[in-house]
Design a protein around this nucleic acid. Structure first.
Length: 281
DNA sequence: CGACTCTCCTGGGTGC
DNA sequence: TGCACCCAGGAGAGTC
């Protein structure tokens, strides 16, 4: 499940393998993959043809490729199963190939492959360097523009539980279900803790925990990254080795040995240590 | 308007 | 072996 660290690994791969190249054609193999590109597949392809990829950028879980010409970018969100692959143009189409870009230099394709089609790509205008559809998303905690004081103030004004707030991309972007659980464990906070009861020092501790778990994941994601295969999947690197609570129901907490608990949360799961992370009363 | 739920999707796993 | 069902998840749409 790609969250910020996995998307950053993809961004680095794209920066290396796609930057500076001219798009020769775009082929949409599944309309759902461009459902947020309202003008449709034909217009999508026509507007991409002949454009140069200038760079590869990211905010939270979104990434985008600014293009030559008008201030526009190819924007992508990987959803939960999306991959952006850099592959030999002669390679056979992947089973879940949704969008295929060919380049004028005859080099590797950029292919958007997505089994569950929660991800999407679109061509969109840039406003101040940020794609318009994600203008409402807050900076992620690795950006210089992330304002910790502003975040703490907004968090304390919310009437909700801390985990809901962590997943709210308008407060802080890039955190998904896995790293939310991991960061809450590290900061010793129960997922249901009301945001209004959090002190500013505790919020600072939580932000540090978010940076810690995602930074560690990024380092491990980077080590398993094959440069010619820009890949994202839930099995690589970090996922098997370093998770402390996520997916570890009944396994002992590494701090205190108490069995990790799983609870339903927003039609999915929250994992936590019932001793280290006391439930609010 | 804020807080919350619903919905989209596929395939691996499970139980009968 | 087949089949029904559950589960995973982000985020926009919809509800109250």
């Amino acid at each position: 499940m790609p969250e910020l660290p996995e998307v950053e690994v993809v961004r680095r791969g794209l920066a290396e393998w796609v930057t500076g190249r001219e798009i020769a054609s775009a082929e949409v193999l599944h309309p759902r993959a461009i459902r947020r590109h309202l003008p449709g597949a034909h217009e999508f392809a026509a507007r991409l043809r002949g454009r140069l990829v200038k760079s590869a950028e990211r905010r939270g879980k979104y990434l985008w490729l600014p293009l030559s010409g008008p201030e526009e970018a190819l924007l992508a969100h990987l959803g939960m199963s999306g991959q952006l692959l850099v592959v030999d143009p002669a390679a056979p189409p992947e089973k879940h190939l949704r969008v295929r870009l060919r380049f004028a230099d005859g080099g590797p394709d950029l292919r958007f492959v997505d089994q569950r089609t929660f991800g999407h790509v679109m061509l969109t205008r840039l406003a101040g360097g940020v794609p318009e559809p994600i203008a409402h998303i807050a900076p992620d905690p690795f950006e210089g523009s992330f304002d910790e004081v502003r975040f703490a103030t907004a968090l304390r004004a919310k009437k909700t539980e801390i985990k809901r707030a962590l997943l709210d991309q308008s407060l802080i972007s890039g955190v998904g279900n896995i790293y939310a659980d991991e960061a809450l464990w590290l900061a010793r906070l129960h997922w249901a803790r009301p945001t209004q009861t959090l002190t500013r020092p505790k919020i600072a501790e939580l932000v540090a925990a978010v940076r810690e778990v995602m930074g560690a994941a990024l380092q491990q994601g980077g080590t398993s990254f094959d440069s010619l295969y820009v890949n994202v999947n839930g099995e690589s690197g970090y996922f098997d080795r370093s998770l402390e609570v996520y997916g570890r129901r009944e396994l002992p907490c590494s701090r205190c040995g108490t069995p990790i608990r799983r609870e339903p949360f927003m039609n999915r799961s929250s994992y936590y240590c019932p001793k280290c992370q006391r439930r609010p009363r």
